[in-house]
Design a protein around this nucleic acid. Structure first.
Lengths: 188, 188
DNA sequence: GCTATTAACGCAAAGTATTTGCTTTAAGGG
DNA sequence: CCCTTAAAGCAAATACTTTGCGTTAATAGC
């Protein structure tokens, strides 16, 4: 189920959304995520369970909604002075964050609902970050790289191994992925 | 929860597993998957719900278990006479299968449980298929390609776009991914 | 084969979670 | 400031999940 695009965005509605999100973050830090329940979250947030069911539909959608908010970038990617190191730093931080148990759980939460809108937003976040880095590159007079190429050949393998296991995401591996991006390593 | 490695594998146990799997396939063809319930599956399979809960733990694990079985290869990849076209045909069939609503649902089912064992098995299936193709290549005297490279730079982008949306998986796009695999397109 | 052992199933009761109809509250517009 | 109505609360009804215990049948030992 989709989180409704609300017509009312202020006041009580916003307070309750914030309280519920906070409750999910709080409880998922304390307890195992597979024994997280809607009534438990409702109690922690001080709302009635039916409010959560009516607004988010089910636990999976609520968790996905919270996960998207946690993955939403709070700042622009670090400016290291050069495009290649900007991208490398961004990727290293992404891997650092997502290989943790919390990161892996967020990834699953975002990808699990039938609705693709949650995972779609995360893809947009990544593209926005890469756009920022690409704009900086252009401002510096460097050749801008191809965002789709970084998504397909750096991000995608990382996400694949996060979800499907069977390979460790070492720093060296990430660097080898970056090395294959032609528009970064071989500017022409 | 993990599906237990059962000590008893024959007779009644096997019949019930088959009946439950069949019921899931049957019902998920008829009804929307987000209104599929354990009691409903139990009724269709002619077992009691507690059998399903004790054996699979929850609906997500059962769906993942069924999805893995449906994704398990039933035959070796087609032998087209040349390595490049073997891989291309395999990828085209994979995309054909997974872009359908059923395929997308299977992908999500496999990836959703906290347990990585389900998605891990799917990665193994892919590697086995690619191994078969690589062995054939060697038998023909062709240069064998790097399986990890195909996983990372062809499969991973495809899976990424399946899960995160925002890009259509056209045939031309798949071919462009294959074109980037050095050990396939530029044998040296 | 036959029996003993015990994993796995069935049943039913107890415990939770989810849905739903109706009432109340408070945003946002006039 | 009042009206309209989206969204929340409440509580009863329904549905799902867990659990204890008796029963069935798969396997091991003889």
């Amino acid at each position: 189920m989709v989180v409704k695009e609300r017509i009312r965005i202020g006041g009580r509605s916003a307070r309750i959304q914030e309280a519920v999100h906070r409750a999910v973050r709080q409880l998922s830090a304390e307890t195992d995520r597979d024994q997280l329940t809607v009534p438990q979250i409702a109690a922690e947030a001080g709302v009635t369970p039916s409010t959560i069911y009516r607004r988010w539909g089910d636990l999976a959608s609520l968790l996905a909604d919270v996960a998207v908010e946690r993955l939403r970038p709070i700042a622009d990617p670090e400016d290291t002075g050069a495009t290649a190191s900007d991208v490398r730093t961004f990727i290293e931080q992404y891997v650092e964050e997502m290989t943790s148990p919390i990161g892996r759980a967020l990834m699953r939460d975002v990808v699990s609902p039938l609705e693709q809108s949650y995972s779609g937003k995360c893809d947009v976040f990544t593209r926005q970050h890469l756009s920022t880095i690409a704009e900086r590159a252009e401002a510096r007079g460097e050749t801008p790289f191809d965002i789709d190429e970084v998504i397909d050949h750096v991000m995608a393998p990382i996400v694949y191994h996060l979800l499907f296991g069977n390979r460790e995401l070492t720093l060296a591996y990430c660097h080898s992925l970056l090395g294959r991006v032609q528009s970064l390593s071989r500017p022409d």
